[in-house]
Design a protein around this nucleic acid. Structure first.
Ligand SMILES: [Zn+2]
Ligand SMILES: [Zn+2]
Ligand SMILES: [Zn+2]
Ligand SMILES: [Zn+2]
Lengths: 145, 145
DNA sequence: CGGTGAAATGTTATGACATAACGCTATCGA
DNA sequence: TCGATAGCGTTATGTCATAACATTTCACCG
């Protein structure tokens, strides 16, 4: 059981519920991104039955920066950078078309440039999506270059 | 019939077919991004009946840089920057959650930083998605700031 | 002219992703 | 204890995208 003993959970939003914890663990153990339905399939034996149960958990996880949605894939990964866990950090993702693996990184300079553009245009920036598609070094090295 | 008189269409790949032209004009006249099904609805009276007709046209338009897919919206806009029309250019998009309008721009420095990251990691970069979400100056100015 | 191959088209069916709407339950502070 | 808030479970539905197959169009060439 998650979050049961040892903490008084007095209004700690960082405390995960059962479903949230199940979904996060599933993402954690996955090699690459999973769709909500992939996650659902892996959690049927734990009692989950409907997509909404997964989507609701994902919403919270993404909100807290513990997971990310990859827009260009309509799929989710667990966060690989503690810096995101406050929720605000802007991350970038390199997604390999070959093996499906995702590399999360942060480039402050890129973020700063985009923020500057927004500033200049009076655009109230709330969220930024940066996704690179291509083939990772491993995939380039091994097959049909 | 589109593209019939006045041009000899001798193997110009930049030459749009009837469906491609219809879809592009629809995007052109729209205020903001349209989903493929939005486009389909607007083109029923022109004889289009199935989503695939629209998706196929969109594929070609995106390929040629005449339109862009906004991943975070699952929708499409016509390109606002002739620099894209060779297909290779990396554009960024600021999408307003208030009015839905989209502002396309290019930041060479951002592109260069991302390319440098890819270079360093041996990642074979093929395509880059950059999307900013927030509220445009107009929407911030007018309501509940 | 008539054949040929590539690309585009039209159509039906299906798959994949996501949310609306409802009612119930657990928890916590006043 | 009561009311508020957040989470949960379920059904139904909505939205986005592609598979598969038959047909049409048209530049090209013998
Ligand atoms: Zn992260
Ligand atoms: Zn790879
Ligand atoms: Zn463009
Ligand atoms: Zn706006």
């Amino acid at each position: 059981m998650a979050h049961s003993h040892d903490d008084h959970h007095h209004e700690r939003p960082r405390d995960l519920t059962r479903n949230q914890d199940l979904v996060l663990q599933t993402l954690n153990h996955a090699e690459g991104p999973l769709s909500a339905y992939d996650i659902l399939d892996k959690l049927r034996e734990d009692g989950l039955r409907a997509p909404l149960q997964v989507y609701r958990a994902l919403d919270k996880l993404v909100e807290q920066g513990l997971a990310h949605r990859l827009e260009s894939l309509s799929a989710f990964v667990c966060c690989a950078d503690a810096g995101c866990h406050d929720g605000a950090r802007t991350a970038a993702f390199a997604i390999c078309s070959g093996c499906g693996r995702v590399d999360e990184f942060a480039d402050p300079e890129v973020v700063e440039r985009l923020a500057a553009w927004a500033q200049e245009k009076g655009f109230g920036l709330e969220r930024t999506t940066i996704e690179l598609r291509g083939r990772c070094a491993r995939c380039l090295g091994s097959s049909t270059p």
